[in-house]
Design a protein around this nucleic acid. Structure first.
Lengths: 142, 142
DNA sequence: GTGCTTGCAAACGTTTTGCAGACTC
DNA sequence: GAGTCTGCAAAACGTTTGCAAGCAC
């Protein structure tokens, strides 16, 4: 049982007239092996032979192809994850401890509908995390 | 009829043992005169005698005091606005044309409740805009 | 062989910081 | 007068870009 929603990365790259270079393949592999979203820096650390700028370039190409997407959890660097995973989830980011609470995207369906009907605005959630306080930090100061 | 929700900026600054310098006062004045959120750069442009770094420092202090807050609309610089205005609204940011659609914060009340009950996570919306497509850009490519 | 892809180094835009002098209270 | 605030310059940070060599197809 595959959770794959679209064509695999290789096919999309080929279909766009692009090529599967070493950096590009390895970046995909790393993202596939991660359990959550990671920074470009973290990808680069796991690939000592791939330059950071190539990681960024790969991520940008893959994002245009719809293979990966990035999310801003709080401040600081963007986090990247494979799209087929990202499409089903939303991130809640604790502003105090940085914890990333993952929730199903479907929670936002009602809000989506209301905003679409009243403002004609179609939410494309997932790009920015919803900030707030997690269970552990609710009563903390600061 | 005042819409002021808390003590005025001057009182808060004094209460924190801080002082009302020239930069700080002018930054508050500029924010009060704007109809929407603005970048630090835009504030600095309106204050030729105040250095950009002082604008940033003022904004940071005022944010810690709860006088202003900042929001990330899409990519690029953060946007700052007075808290008493910001508390009542949320920003929807069109990822294509950059348009800032302002909606009442109360739209998010139901979602807030659900997420708080099911995940113990208290949403502090407003820090990041909700991305998507505005009426004009819904059917556009790219 | 064509031309996309990569490494490197240098630049970019935004924001922060160290310091000495100016100002508030 | 004590201690905060400001201007300036320099740095930090994440990210992008120009170029020449290297590689996929």
């Amino acid at each position: 049982v595959e959770s794959q929603v679209g064509p695999d990365p290789g096919s999309r790259i080929k279909a766009a007239g692009l090529r599967m270079g070493a950096a590009r393949r390895q970046v995909i592999d790393v993202l596939g092996s991660m359990s959550g979203p990671v920074t470009a820096e973290e990808v680069a650390v796991r690939l000592p032979d791939v330059h950071v700028s190539s990681v960024y370039r790969s991520l940008n190409v893959l994002e245009e192809l719809g293979v990966v997407r990035h999310v801003h959890l709080t401040h600081g660097p963007a986090l990247f994850e494979l799209s087929d995973v990202a499409a089903q989830i939303r991130h809640l980011a604790c502003e105090r401890c940085g914890r990333d609470v993952v929730v199903p995207a479907s929670l936002f369906d009602d809000l989506r509908t209301v905003i679409e009907q009243e403002y004609g605005f179609v939410i494309d959630g997932g790009h920015f995390a919803i900030p707030g306080r997690c269970t552990d930090c609710i009563d903390c100061a600061g």
